[in-house]
Amino acid sequence: MTLSLLASYGTFAAMAGRFLLPTGGRPRRWLLVSDLGSFRAGATRTFVAPTGERIVIARRAAGDASGGDDRGAPALDEFVALSSTCPHLGCQVTWQPQETRFFCPCHNGTFAPDGSPTGGPPLEANQSLPRYPLRIDAGLLYIEVPLADGAAT
């Protein structure tokens, strides 16, 4: 009897627990950034995600590009999209043009333009700025970003 009661009410409690869990995180989506033709080597773009986050997308300068197909189309690895969320404790980093670095005001973390840590707690823990996935499809650059709450219409 006890076993049967525990099993049934326990299952109910487990379902209640599952109910309280968030529903599978924010939905993510591939969004257009730009056509490749107008994104010149060495250029930097700011992509504002639907959540409002400013994502820095950079294309490496010509010369240190490693790939690209025979048509001269750029390869995916020439592009990098950096999150502005510090990997240490989640504050928003800002770009300091005079220092050419990203700076996190919470614990003085700093990052190089490619997102690698150069100082503060991120360097100690060797944490880079997170990167967003990029994709090239039919000559267009896409980025996968989380959607804002209520983006659905």
Partner: peptide, 13 residues
Amino acid sequence: RVISEDVAYGWFL
């Protein structure tokens, strides 16, 4: 609507 459609077991509870 979110409770009824999106959340696990929401419709049930």
